[in-house]
């Protein structure tokens, strides 16, 4: 959605380049298993699509439509996310191996990667409607996993504590936004916050 939004509007205004950089890093470090294991054609295709879209978005923001990127409001300090997340992925993981640590890093990083975007909206006090749709579906995507994990726990005995805890954190971070989306955007209003 976000790649599409920038492509058709020719502007990167209101989109956090930092969040998009973090997502590119998330998908790169998580999908290194493209080289080591094959799950399904769907799985492989989606991984490639996510990686391609995240890099395309970063390219659009920082290269093609750089002049329209609102860097002055994109001031979240990403090192405050990357450093603790990097440390935690070394300490709490399933297996102390390079691929597994990078996978863990991507899971932890994804859970907080939206913070620069939410921070940006809180600074500017508003967001375009298509941006809010993007954020809603990005949040919904992980929230639906919570339901899926309960299902898989009961019917497949599957339980991945790292993914579940990070998924819960990620969903909680979106809750405030979900509230604004339902109470404002779905009622036809633009998302704008009181000053």
């Amino acid at each position: 959605i976000v790649t599409f939004k920038i492509t058709i509007s020719f502007i990167a205004l209101g989109i956090s380049g930092k969040s998009q950089l973090l997502f590119a890093l998330v998908f790169t470090t998580r999908y290194l298993d493209l080289f080591t294991s094959f799950i399904s054609l769907y799985n492989t295709s989606m991984k490639l699509i996510y990686i391609a879209c995240s890099y395309a978005t970063v390219y659009l923001i920082y290269m093609k439509f750089k002049a329209t990127y609102d860097g002055n409001h994109d001031t979240f300090r990403v090192e405050f996310l990357i450093v603790p997340v990097g440390g935690l992925s070394f300490l709490v993981n399933h297996d102390f191996s390079p691929l597994e640590i990078l996978w863990t890093f991507s899971i932890y990083l994804e859970s907080v990667a939206i913070l620069p975007q939410l921070f940006m909206i809180s600074k500017t006090g508003e967001a375009e409607t298509i941006t809010t749709h993007y954020l809603f579906f990005l949040g919904l995507y992980r929230a639906l996993y919570l339901v899926n994990w309960i299902w898989r726990y009961y019917f497949e005995g599957f339980f991945d504590l790292i993914a579940v805890v990070a998924g819960v954190v990620q969903t909680v971070l979106y809750c405030d936004f979900f509230y604004l989306y339902v109470t404002k955007v779905l009622k036809g209003k633009k998302l704008s916050l009181p000053a």
């Binding site: 399933h94 297996d95 599957f158 991945d160």
Partner: peptide, 10 residues
Amino acid sequence: EYNVYQHDEL
């Protein structure tokens, strides 16, 4: 038993 090192989720 699920092999947790083969991550099948996106």
